[in-house]
Design a binder for these strands. Structure first.
Length: 884
RNA sequence: GCCAGAGUGGUGAAAUUGGUAGACACGACGGACUCAAAAUCCGUUGCUAGCGAUAGCGUGCCGGUUCGAGUCCGGCCUCUGGUACCA
């Protein structure tokens, strides 16, 4: 046995052993409990970064843990290989995206192998392989036939200079990232999947996911956004047309004072034809990108169309505005506005001097009414004054009738006033009454609405899966002869998809043309988890093996996928279910969302004001006597650098730590241990080189302890009783209990803490003959507890110390409850909730004995001397609180 | 803007979920070993006062509930993720 810890050598040997024994190859074994553990597959961007290492280490720890519990564990790996970065790299290097992508896959695969992950590599897949994407093309043609896929126009970001569609990420401050031109919204024909048909089911399914983080469930619930409301038809004055809106607050219908439509709404476009101001406004609204964050933060603006609507109940006249915050793609592209009871409507009304008509008062406002004298004009009841101005309404007591500032109470439900036949009803009663009234008059009725919109899957890009559609003179039809293969040897030039310039791809003769758009890359990542079960199935998308493995028992990935990817995958699973391909509704039983990896940034200011960023590896720091960093300089020139804050590891801030360098230097086990130890999996992980040193030190400490006792594994005799080392053995089993508990709740940092504590105990007490038996048992426990986290060293020591042949087949350690028994316990004594002392009492002491011991404590007596004791609270086994 | 999180020593964090705040580490300081250094081992380490026993203060800020609050409730501040074409 090597005297010194030599990670490079032992890790290579351990990996060789696993490879030779095909340790992680799995097949379906119906008699064995299965466990499918999946980490989100990487985009092959070039090299592995720390985020990947963290994600895959967490997944591997869970996989190996489940395997040691005796389950049939599947852990696959593959490549999310289509996407925008390949096109950007292709543009830069003038090489085909396919070449770049496959080279990256080769390199990153080599890096993954160095980390000792227990993947079944026989199941590897890459989404850019036609063997993979042919099946999503197949599914799509079925969806077209089932009317679950359809075409409609939708807005995209258009760069008028580069004449190309931009991703939201490529729009920076409203301008194209390469051209710098102001981006425009442009409506183009696109394919959509009817995810809204599944909205209710996707919402209900969230209740059946107790293994998901509550925050993710909450985000998905809000994203789907079910709301019960009413549709209302407003006639357009002097025409036969109508404007339909949806509202969740029909109780405020009598307070409507204006309507707002999207700038691209047909009514607005028509008004713009005869009015230069309106046309200019519509043009201004066209500028800027389509992302919600951009649209919602832009200042609200509108313009009167000089078209009026007719209130469906009062017959009053309501002006129609075009507004930049109403979007054509959402609902009907029109909203009714109630400025007295909606914040956004309120500020818009103030900006354009529109009427504000309060119609709801607080529930406790029995009998009181809104003073008519303070309102001189309100749509639906009186003609608007000439300039549509309304004087300020005053607030009385807690009346929601203020004009100057908005109060959130204004939007609360209450009792209706000034609402004709509905006055006096509560908001809830009015909801029903208004809905029935509209329904009876043929002017609307109840409706359930979802915030969720249908999924646009068309992308005007090259490096993606071709949409299998053919345009013929007779119309649109699904392609036959799948797969429709993506041409590979292509040079990208940044002016739109090269497929559009390749008649050999799209021109099928007889006026028949292939679709040249490709699928959104979320399409591929929405079903890869299922394909891993049967990656070689060549007669169908999935086969019977999928029904053995699915659902995924544990999914691990970044929190940034909380909504889109996870929702699309839940949707796809249902699409595949409805094709009879899978049995289950939900694809992922448990979900762990891991936090990002961040690091300190360092910079120097250049003379032109720009900043130069330096890698943390090239910096040395100086600390004060408390250990606080007071200055830092670049190693190479010794001149100072300055901290720029802690940020996500990135190329732009040059704060990435290369996993490869660390593996070369410390070995994979140390990197894995550090990552698992330094933060709980769901939290942000702040990188620290010193922390890695600490992890490395622990590895050596473990190795040194073990190598000093060759063959000690043979001393383990049925949890060998150790008389003279009772306290030490109790500590070991207490830490073991803690570690087992933390494995179950997936808090791996404290699993490592517990292992460190056990090693500390063994260092102190492992010397004598009895100590050797303690050591034999304790080391056996630590090796198995660390097995999933640091697999190479534990594999090696398990064999070298004679514990057994293969630690993967060892039984998982169990707590010996008899080792935990104590004779006496220490309890904390508080007076008035403040700790004043400690008492030692027998384990079975009753409350009277505990109280007596408490009152006998000298320091306690100091604090109860001249005050009255009201009562004494005893928390068994923990503390005593004397209430004074 | 909207939705969802997070904030604890010099640092990463722990606190079995309302019961001893700071486990386990990192760093720093002191010691042993060494000609010396590295490595290793041992000790001290929330802040303030005190030789000490001990006391006061302390979990982003303000307020509340409770015998008792890092944990529960109300209101803020700052940071992070998502926001439908980054993946």
């Amino acid at each position: 046995m090597e005297e010194k810890y030599n990670p490079q050598q032992l890790e290579a040997a351990a990996r060789q052993y696993w490879e030779k024994n095909r340790s992680f190859k799995v097949i379906e074994e119906p008699d064995k409990e299965k466990f499918y553990c999946l980490s989100m597959f990487p985009y092959p961007s070039g090299e592995l970064h720390m985020g990947h290492v963290r994600n895959y280490t967490i997944g591997d720890v869970i996989s190996r843990y489940q395997r040691m519990l005796g389950k049939n564990v599947l852990q696959p790996m593959g490549w999310d290989a289509f996407g925008l970065p390949a096109e950007n790299a292709a543009l830069k290097n003038a090489r085909p995206p396919a070449e770049w992508t496959y080279a990256n896959i080769e390199y990153m695969k080599g890096q993954l192998k160095l980390l000792g992950f227990s993947y079944d590599w026989d199941r590897e897949l890459a989404t850019c392989d036609a063997d993979y994407y042919r099946w999503e093309q197949w599914l799509f043609t079925h969806l077209v036939k089932k009317d679950l896929a359809y075409r409609k126009k939708a807005a995209v970001n258009w760069d008028p200079v580069d004449r190309t569609v931009l991703a939201n990420e490529q729009v920076i401050d409203g301008r194209g990232w390469r051209s710098g031109a102001v981006v425009e919204k442009r409506e183009i024909e696109q394919w959509f999947l009817k995810i809204t048909d599944y909205a209710q089911e996707l919402l209900d399914g969230l209740d059946k996911l107790p293994g998901w983080p509550e925050q993710v469930v909450a985000m998905q619930r809000n994203w789907i956004g079910r709301s019960e409301g009413v549709t209302v038809d407003f006639n357009i004055e002097e025409t036969d047309e109508k404007l339909t809106v949806f509202t969740t607050r029909p109780d405020t219908l009598m307070g409507v004072t204006y309507m707002a439509v999207a700038a691209e709404h047909p009514l607005a476009l028509r008004a713009g034809e005869g009015n230069a101001d309106i046309a200019a406004f519509i043009e201004r609204c066209r500028q800027g990108g389509v992302s919600e964050a951009e649209i919602e933060t832009v200042e609200k603006a509108g313009i009167a169309l000089d078209i009026n609507a007719v209130h469906p109940i009062t017959g009053g006249i309501v002006p129609i505005y075009a507004a930049n915050f109403v979007l054509m793609g959402y609902g009907t592209g029109a909203v009714m506005a109630v400025p007295a009871h909606d914040e956004r409507d309120f500020y818009f009304a103030r900006k354009y001097n529109l009427s504000i008509k309060p119609v709801i008062v607080p529930s406790h406002w029995e009998g009181k009414d809104i003073s008519e004298s303070e309102i001189n004009s309100a749509a639906g009841e009186a003609e608007l004054s000439e300039d549509r101005r309304v004087p300020a309404l005053s607030i009385k007591d807690d009346l929601p009738l203020i004009w100057d500032e908005w109060d959130t109470r204004f939007s609360e439900k209450g009792i209706l006033r000034r609402s004709a036949r509905f006055s006096g009803l509560t908001s809830d009663q009015a909801f029903d009454a208004v809905a029935e009234h509209l329904n009876a008059g043929g002017k609307g009725g109840r409706q359930i609405n979802f915030r969720l919109r249908d999924w646009s899957v068309s992308r005007q890009r090259y490096w993606g899966c071709p949409i299998p559609i053919v345009k013929t003179p007779e119309g649109i039809e699904p392609a036959t002869g799948l797969p429709v293969k993506l041409p590979q040897d292509i040079i990208v030039d940044g002016t739109g998809s090269p497929l559009k310039r390749m008649p050999e791809f799209y021109d099928l003769g007889d006026g028949r043309e292939r679709e040249t758009d490709t699928f959104d890359t979320f399409f591929e990542s929405s079903w890869y988890y299922a394909r891993y079960c049967c990656p070689d199935a060549d007669q169908s998308m999935l086969d019977e093996r999928a029904k053995y493995w699915l659902p995924v028992d544990q999914y691990v990935g970044g929190i940034e996928h909380a909504i889109l990817h996870l929702l699309y995958a839940r949707f796809f699973n249902r699409l595949m279910r409805d094709e009879g391909l899978v049995d289950n509704d939900e694809p992922f039983t448990r979900l762990l969302t891991q936090g990002m990896v961040v690091a300190e940034t360092w910079y120097r200011q250049n003379e032109d004001g720009s900043k130069e960023w330096f890698n943390p590896a090239d910096i040395e720091t100086e600390r004060d006597n408390k250990g606080k960093v007071i200055s830092a300089r670049l190693k190479s020139d010794g001149r100072p650098v300055f901290p720029g804050g802690i940020e996500k590891m990135s190329k732009s801030k040059n704060n990435g730590v290369n996993p490869q360098t660390l593996i070369d230097r410390y070995g994979a086990d140390t990197v894995r241990l550090y990552i698992m130890f330094t933060s709980p999996p769901e939290q942000l992980l702040e990188w620290s080189d010193e922390g890695v040193e600490g992890a490395s030190r622990f590895m050596k400490r473990l190795w040194n302890l073990a190598s000093a006792h060759p063959g000690i594994g043979g001393l383990v005799v049925s949890n060998g009783i150790v008389d003279n080392q009772k306290n030490a053995r109790r500590e070991v089993h207490e830490h073991l209990k803690k570690a087992l508990f933390d494995y179950e709740r997936q808090q791996f940092n404290t699993v490592v803490s517990a292992c460190m504590s056990i090693v500390n105990v063994l260092y102190r007490f492992g010397g004598s003959d009895d100590g050797k038996r303690l050591l034999a048992e304790g080391l056996g426990i630590v090796l198995r507890l660390l097995g999933p986290i640091a697999p190479h060293i534990t594999h090696t020591l398990w064999r070298e110390l004679d514990y057994g042949d293969d630690i993967l087949n060892a039984p998982w350690p169990e707590v010996d409850e008899s080792a935990l028994v104590r004779d006496s316990i220490e309890m904390v004594v508080q007076v008035g909730g403040r700790v004043r002392g400690r008492i030692t009492v027998a384990v079975d002491a009753d409350n009277a004995a505990i109280e007596a011991a408490t009152l006998a404590n000298k320091n306690v007596q100091r604090f109860i001397d001249d005050v009255e004791i009201r009562k004494i609270i005893v928390v068994p086994g923990k503390l005593v609180n004397v209430v004074v």
